[in-house]
Nucleic acid binder design. Structure first.
Length: 561
RNA sequence: GCGCUCGUAGCUCAGUUGGAUAGAGCGUCGGCCUCCGGAGCCGAAGGUCACAGGUUCGAAUCCUGUCGAGCGCACCA
């Protein structure tokens, strides 16, 4: 149990003694170091219930609290009724020791109830290459899955392939048009078809591969053949792009499977059995308004075909039937209006709190102060691959993750390509590499640095104490980020930590304060500081790896001419 | 017109679920380092939290309204 948890338990007990059961005691590290190591607003929260002055209650809480047993060196009432605690040095040093002991597990936690969770993301139609917006969803979904795993859940990453329906037919027709153009015919891309140049390349490839067969086919056969060929080809490309972007899906689930296994009819029957569908104007409607949607939605059109909604409900029903206890979908902003009806449909099927939807907002790319235009309609766009091949995978992933996903972001290519510490990715990676370089210089294996042979009580510099407190917070940061499905919380933490680390490192520069360096002559102090450096390195590495980034041993800057 | 997301420093963004004097990076300015430039280090300036009300010990955070931005509002996918 961490010192904060111990103290919280004691505070809860005191609150109960004062006649306030079940209060959620908040215990936080104040921003301002003058306010101690931990602070609680408990007295102010109780003031309302007990109808007494907060400061008076604070005094009483302090009188009843076993401070020494909780590792508290001193405590005081401050401000409107905050209680500030200062922990003993022993508690501080123990926190660093814990980092080294837990090593790769530091930051991981166990949930109250372990859930089997599916994270579905990217799920791009196989009608073209992945573009930058998919990249943001890919980075986000992957990091959220990783966060959930770090907090002890069982997680699977899934890509849903929309390989059925009219858009796929248009793809086949579009490729057919490109192929016929290649054969010298006057062929137009069909209405609603795909104009991208990638289909010109694909037409050439498929011709090289199967010219004789294509020529021999009827028009209908040919479109069907090209459709299958293109889908297979684009799916493989999506998979390859994601792998190169370091996203490893656990499964790809094709929409066609929903059809083949008869899940749609099954789902519609279940909804009908529950009395939640009705016919009107020749169509079958789902009563989503009974579950919070603002209008009912069509499942089967009057021409007898399904809307997109029907297979989608069936697919989500399968998620629950496949044994997932919770599902998280990452959707693009253009689908956010779809959230209430999907949740309503699941509620109708008896899965009211099954689904969470995270919305990923638009990405705009700026270079030299100007927006890089992404025009899908004209068929010219910046693909995800082009982006990460230019910036590197670490940078692209980090940039996508460092902002809240539900706000639009501007991707600053100039900053992304900057290799100095102005670039937040490099700032964090530099801090990690610096620790590794210290170990190299000291001639020690990082993993051999233990706490047994180090006297951590020698770490008495204020910066060292602040740094240890910062490291100790990592597990709470991970939990909070997982809870909020918000990887940017980890990014912010890593940048803040790296900033502290870098100034700690620079303070020990031989030209300034050689006595503050890690590698001082005094052997015991040197060992203690190496242990702190090791703690720093563990936290930065764990944080970077959690986000799917590399934690380099050394930075190699590309020489620019 | 209705709904969703959002509006915080010149720019890009955080803000620990309602807490103490609203933070960071970039940019700007000053100093240091450097053969010069870049990089790096130290420091400073910079705010009506879009606006107006309300809720309470306490609001950037919650509620209502207004203004502004983006995206949705299909028997499209």
């Amino acid at each position: 149990m961490s010192p904060a948890e111990q103290l919280r338990a004691r505070l809860e007990r005191v609150a109960a003694e004062l006649g306030a059961d079940g209060v959620d005691v908040q215990l936080e590290r104040p921003r301002n170091p003058e306010h101690g190591d931990l602070a609680t607003n408990l007295a102010m929260v109780l003031a309302g219930r007990l109808r007494r002055a907060p400061r008076q209650i604070a005094d009483e809480i302090l009188a009843r609290l076993d401070l020494e047993g909780a590792g508290v060196a001193s405590a005081e009432v401050a401000g409107a009724g905050f209680i500030n605690f200062r922990l003993t040095g022993a508690v501080l040093w123990e926190q660093l020791a814990r980092v080294l002991r837990e090593d790769r597990a530091f930051g991981r936690s166990e949930p109250e109830d372990r859930l089997r969770i599916q994270v579905e993301f990217v799920s791009a139609n196989p009608t073209g290459p992945l573009h930058v917006a998919h990249g943001r969803g890919a980075a986000l979904g992957d990091a959220i899955a990783s966060l959930l795993r770090w907090t002890g859940h069982e997680v699977e990453r899934e890509f849903y392939i929309n390989d059925a329906g009219v858009q796929i037919q248009r793809l086949g027709e579009s490729l057919d048009a490109r192929w016929r153009q290649l054969m010298g015919e006057e062929a137009a891309i069909p209405e609603g078809g795909y104009h991208g140049a990638y289909l010109v390349d694909m037409a050439r490839e498929v011709d090289a591969e199967a010219h004789d067969r294509l020529v021999a086919m009827s028009a209908e056969e040919r479109v069907a053949f090209l459709r299958r060929w293109a889908v297979e080809r684009l799916e493989a490309e999506h998979d390859r792009t994601l792998r190169d972007f370091r996203v490893q899906m656990d499964s790809y689930y094709p929409e066609t499977r929903i059809y083949e296994e008869g899940r749609i009819a099954e789902t519609l029957r279940e909804l009908a059995d529950r009395g939640l569908t009705y016919e009107s104007e020749g169509a079958v409607w789902l009563r989503t308004t009974a579950f919070g949607d603002d209008k009912d939605r069509v499942l089967v059109k009057s021409d007898g075909t399904y809307t997109y909604f029907a297979p989608d409900i069936a697919y989500h029903r399968e998620k629950a039937r496949r044994g997932f206890q919770h599902a998280i979908d990452i959707w693009g902003a253009d689908h956010h209006g779809y959230v209430p009806r999907m949740k309503a449909a699941l509620a109708a099927l008896g899965y009211p709190d099954f689904l969470d939807v995270e919305i990923v907002q638009m990405v705009r790319i700026m270079r030299g102060g100007e927006e890089v235009k992404i025009s899908k309609r004209a068929g010219e766009f910046v693909t995800l691959r082009e982006l990460f091949e230019e910036t590197g995978v670490d940078v692209a992933r980090y940039f996508f993750l460092m902002r809240r996903s539900d706000a639009q972001m501007i991707f600053d290519l100039d900053l992304a390509l900057d290799q100095s510490e102005k670039n937040p990715v490099y700032k964090v990676q530099y801090a990690h590499a610096r620790m590794m370089s210290i170990f190299r210089k000291a001639g020690v294996e990082p993993s051999s640095i233990g706490v047994e042979d180090a006297d951590l009580s020698l770490l008495r510099e204020p910066v060292e104490g602040e740094l240890i407190k910062q490291l100790a917070e990592f597990p709470a940061v991970v939990s909070r980020a997982a809870e909020a499905r918000a990887p940017h919380i980890v990014c912010d933490y890593l940048e803040e930590t790296a900033g502290m680390v870098n100034s700690w490192y620079h303070a020990g520069n031989p030209s300034r304060n050689p006595e503050l360096a890690v590698l001082v002559p005094h052997p015991a102090l040197r060992r203690a500081r190496l242990a702190l450096a090791r703690g720093v390195q563990i936290v930065l590495r764990n944080g970077l790896e959690l986000l799917g980034l590399s934690a380099p041993d050394r930075m190699q800057r590309e020489e620019t001419a």
